[in-house]
Design a protein around this nucleic acid. Structure first.
Lengths: 320, 320
DNA sequence: GCCCTTTTTGCTCATATGAGCAGAGCGCCG
DNA sequence: CGGCGCTCTGCTCATATGAGCAAAAAGGGC
């Protein structure tokens, strides 16, 4: 019933019978009039020519091979890559990354005594995806100034509280605006005992968890009123690709506007760079550039991202 | 490094290690601290919950399970279903179906002495995909009136010649328009010795190969000038879903306009229905309705189609 | 709390698969 | 035409996997 000319086609027929019809190699051999060894060889060749694709379709699946590649390429301590397969849109994808980050955080050993976190939509998602009792006695401290200008004021605080509560720990907020208008105000608020105390605690945290924003008009810092969209446009013009803990960086991971940076309250990027464990959660189509800036400039030791971003990171001819 | 709460998640982790990292079940067990039997069971459960998807990515791959289902549901002698995976657009998909039809034709046993064919884009594609020497001594005969009005005049003839040449056989054309204006003309042309001879040969062919068109303004019969798009609109209004060998049928496979049908030269649908072997090649998004009409009304014994159409055919609650 | 039912676990054993090797077939060159 | 090296085939044997079963554990009603 089947005239199969060449080996490639034969290996496809064999694969159909073996994988789709789950017959044994022996049975396949009987049908195609081949010895079972030949069938085995055909199957092997189909596999390494890439004709057989095995995909794990699950919201919490991961791409271990990509993780390994990313880890090596950018010398990270760890990488979590969630698959795109079967996602319905960017929201879904970000939810997966958040879940991945939550899982990673829960599995982190040693369990951090103090966890420094930033705030934003991504962090909020991570907090939501953490399981109750993901750890015990973890104190959470904010590492950059919170939102305070508009109705989203509570979000940053809520994120910190939720993460802490689910680990039966304390949350410590950083009671300060994210960016101040004048350098003097920033300096004096930093010298305030309360604020200074929180900053010290933040500086000594055993692990950090943060996300990154895209430099654009829809940035959280614009939405919260710290910057105008004009300010952001100007930053972009000067090379900004996104922000990390409220600080705008360019593709090389350098501060774009030092004077703006000086007025920004929270951990410095250098402090973050010297941290033992810092987990960056950066996923979604738009964030490829920031993600690259973060990993190439050593801002994180662990990256949680999606397959698309991971592939983009590996794609280009950066020799590390 | 990994706290995995429930079994589902565990089975996903196991699958990642087993399939993506190709470790043995034993090794996976060691990593996840499970016995290898547990791993085996987790893997099995992941498989039948559908988390593991194995796909054969190849232009000439087929979907045997769908073929079996279609074959049973519509009591066909055979069904060929080509996969959608990895196609870039409808053209690609139609090319695959054409290849599938060509392969099937070549593998047909007993080799038909005379093969009756229709004409059109699909048939042309099939002819192109046939391998040189796909058979020997097969005579090809047209079963419905050819195009003759415009520049595509040569296509129908070329298709027949190509199929015949590649099988070192003779091609016999049906030297008549597809549709005539007056019934009398049709009757007299049919009684012409040459035409009658061809029709007899067609009626006695050992196998038939044809496609179906969608009832719409872009139909080949409109393009060839036999019908106006207004005519087709009217046919659609009266329930036409498409045409088979130049004859318009409704969803039940019945002739939509008997008087038009009487003026159409070529094999009748009833003659086609009583054929031992008739292969219909019907693939593409737009052809679901015609495909359904063809298979439910017993017009073909073998259907060559694509995954999408096959799923659509199986989808609805038609009890055969 | 106790006993019965149901599920899960760890196992033995049969089967399926892959690695590696010896011999056959084939082309290529002198 | 014969020798040489190459690839491909069929095999043996070690390993990986799945079926089936008995024991253990978990749940559930009284």
């Amino acid at each position: 019933m089947e005239i199969t000319d060449n080996d490639e086609l034969l290996s496809i027929r064999a694969a159909e019978l073996y994988y789709d019809e789950n017959k044994t190699q022996d049975e396949v051999g009987a049908i195609l009039k081949l010895t079972r060894w030949k069938v085995g060889r055909l199957l092997a060749s189909a596999k390494d020519k890439g004709f057989i694709r095995i995909e794990i379709v699950h919201p919490r699946a991961r791409r271990l091979s990509l993780e390994r590649a990313i880890k090596e390429r950018f010398s990270l301590a760890d990488a979590i890559v969630v698959p795109t397969a079967g996602t319905r849109g960017q929201d879904d994808l970000r939810a997966r990354a958040a879940q991945g980050a939550a899982d990673y955080l829960a599995s982190l050993r040693p369990v951090p005594r103090t966890l420094g976190i930033s705030w934003g939509r991504t962090l909020h998602d991570v907090a939501e995806h953490l399981a109750e009792g993901w750890a015990t006695g973890v104190n959470v401290v904010q590492i950059n100034g919170g939102v305070s200008v508009n109705q989203r004021a509570g979000t940053a605080a809520a994120t910190a509280f939720e993460i802490a509560r689910k680990a039966s720990g304390q949350a410590t907020l950083l009671p300060s605006p994210a960016i101040l208008e004048r350098l003097e105000t920033k300096q004096s608020i930093e010298s305030d005992r309360t604020v200074a105390g929180v900053l010290t605690m933040a500086a000594n945290a055993s692990a950090y968890l943060y996300s990154a924003g895209v430099a654009g008009a829809d940035s959280a810092l614009v939405e919260s009123g710290y910057l105008t969209s004009g300010d952001v446009d100007e930053l972009v013009r000067r090379g900004a690709v996104g922000d990390v803990v409220g600080r705008y960086i360019d593709a090389a991971g350098m501060i774009v506007d030092p004077s703006l940076d000086e007025r920004t309250v929270g951990m410095s990027l250098d402090a973050l760079r010297s941290a033992e464990t810092s987990i960056a959660v950066i996923a979604g189509e738009g964030k490829h550039a920031v993600a690259r800036a973060v990993v190439t400039s050593g801002l994180c030791t662990v990256l949680v991202t999606d397959e698309g971003t991971a592939l983009d990171l590996l794609d280009t001819n950066f020799p590390a």
